[in-house]
Amino acid sequence: MHRKLHSFFACAFCIVLSACGTADQLSQIGKTPALTAIQDPTTMPGYRPVQMPMPMKESDHYAANSLWRSGNRAFFKDQRAKKVGDILTVIVTVSDQAAFDNTSKQGRTDKQNIGAGGAVGAAINTLALPAGMNASSLATLDSTNNYTGTGSIDRKEKLSTTVAAVVTQVLPNGNLVVEGRQEIRVNYEVRELVVGGVIRPQDIAADNTIDSKKIAEARIGYGGRGQITSVQQPRYGSQALDILLPF
């Protein structure tokens, strides 16, 4: 009974969500999807400051008759991003391809004979078994089991684009935490690109760009919302039934 109540409330909750989503979609008929307002990434829901293992801090000192300061990575200043609020360009290059083939085979054959010989067999033949039967071959058990499994995966993904990102944190060791978001609306579809992670200032090129392959803890998301995305998604009822139905 307790499980039935849980299922009932889950279905009711899904229906309410479906109604809210349907009302929102109905209000957007004939309108283009709204773009998200420009916001401070640190004030968005779900934002959490990044914490990474840091080395011991070294104190700065100058050598005699020298303008060089310990800890510097370059002699001349440049315009590459290095402070909170600075902007750099992330070159997103994702080329992922995987192919797996797996075949499993299992076979087993088992055969057993049960009988009695000698004096015991002769006694059984005389006292217990009908004419024509022999105790030396009372029973024969045969068992055969064969299993064959085959599976394959062939996946290929490729994404090449650029997005401007803003420095949201400067870690104690000098590494930069960056986050970038881009929205492009074409007719009635909005494409969204989100990039985030930790980079080294040394990996930033002279033109203030960095390859996505050099981003540690990289988080790259590419998707969309609008009429095409809505058509491609199963209805809320179908998604709820896929989760709740045990078969």
Rank of each mutant, 00 (worst) to 15 (best):
N175C: 08
A164P: 06
T89G: 01
R3L: 14
T150L: 10
G85C: 00
A122M: 02
G180S: 14
E183N: 07
Q182L: 13
E157T: 09
S230F: 13
A218Q: 00
I204R: 02
I87Q: 04
D142Q: 05
K158S: 11
T89F: 12
H2S: 07
A99V: 11
T209D: 00
R69M: 11
G21C: 14
H6V: 15
V195M: 05
F247L: 14
L26T: 07
I220Y: 01
V120I: 04
V120N: 07
L244R: 04
V166P: 03
Y147D: 07
S152R: 07
S230K: 09
V186D: 13
D203Q: 09
A64W: 10
D203P: 01
G226E: 03
S66K: 01
L241C: 03
A240H: 10
A165S: 04
G180K: 13
G221I: 12
T162P: 06
M54L: 13
Y188C: 03
Q233F: 15
A37Y: 04
Q79R: 09
I124P: 00
I29C: 13
S66L: 00
K213L: 02
Q25G: 13
F100H: 11
R235G: 08
L129K: 03
E192C: 12
E189K: 03
T148D: 11
D60Q: 09
M56D: 05
I220T: 00
I243D: 06
Q202W: 12
A74I: 02
T109N: 07
G197E: 02
K31W: 11
P53T: 01
N208C: 02
T22I: 12
P246D: 02
D154K: 07
D154S: 13
D96A: 09
V167M: 03
Q106C: 12
P55K: 02
D207H: 06
V177H: 00
D207K: 08
N173I: 08
A164H: 05
N146L: 15
R219P: 10
L67V: 08
F76G: 09
L17F: 04
G21E: 04
N65P: 10
I220E: 00
L138K: 00
Q112I: 01
A216Y: 10
A165N: 00
G151D: 02
Q239L: 11
P246A: 07
V170E: 13
T103Q: 11
R185D: 04
L171F: 05
V190F: 13
C20T: 09
R225L: 01
G224A: 02
I184A: 12
I114C: 10
G226L: 02
I114M: 11
I153W: 15
Q232A: 10
Y47F: 11
A139F: 01
L138W: 01
A206Q: 13
G149E: 05
Q182R: 10
R48K: 12
